[in-house]
Structures are given as structure tokens and as C-alpha cells.
């Protein structure tokens, strides 16, 4: 089972790390946590549930990424995860 890493730590971007796990857990570290932390969590939960992923650990290191960027980074991570980990 491989760890997937997508995105960057540049301003307005985020680094998403995705790993298979026993249950879904989401860790968020954000430079704008107070203002947007809840929203970031909501975006991540929505994308995971759209893919019906329930057993992954998602870490989001956020540098002020907008919703679309967080969504896109996670989408890429999930696609790679499905390829590499055979839909685990």
C-alpha cells in the first residue's frame, strides 16, 4: 500500500497526502485555519464521499488554496490511489 502525495507547499496551493487506513481520518494544517478550516474539511469530506472512499487517511497541508484547488488535488490523489492500490 503506497502513500500518495499531490500538490505543493507554494502559496495558494496545498499538499495532499493520502494513505490507506482502517477508517477515514482527515488532518488539516492550514495557514488560514481559523477563517476556512471548517470549509476545507467539508470540501475533503464531500470529495471522499463522492468517491465512496471510507478507509483512507487524508492529510492536507494548506497554504491558502481555494476550494477548487483542494478538490482537484484530492481528486488527483484519489485517482492515483485507485490505480496504485487497486481500488483499496
Amino acid at each position: 500500500m503506497k502513500t500518495i502525495v499531490v500538490g505543493s507547499l507554494e502559496s495558494s496551493d496545498c499538499l495532499i497526502t493520502l494513505q490507506p487506513a482502517d477508517k477515514t481520518t482527515i488532518d488539516i494544517e492550514s495557514v488560514v485555519y481559523d477563517a476556512y478550516g471548517k470549509r476545507i474539511r467539508h470540501v475533503i469530506e464531500r470529495v471522499l464521499s463522492a468517491h465512496q472512499l471510507t478507509r483512507v487517511h487524508v492529510r492536507c497541508q494548506d497554504k491558502g488554496a481555494l476550494d477548487y484547488a483542494i478538490e482537484a488535488r484530492l481528486e488527483t490523489a484519489i485517482k492515483r490511489h485507485k490505480e496504485v492500490n487497486h481500488g483499496a
Binding site: 488560514v32 481559523d34 477563517a35 476556512y36 478550516g37 470549509r39 481555494l66 476550494d67
Partner: peptide
């Protein structure tokens, strides 16, 4: 519209 409305803290 771009960022969303920030939560006031």
C-alpha cells in the same frame, strides 16, 4: 466569490 466568506474569529 473566490475565497468564500471567512469565519470571523
Amino acid at each position: 466569490a473566490l475565497c468564500g466568506v471567512p469565519a470571523t474569529t
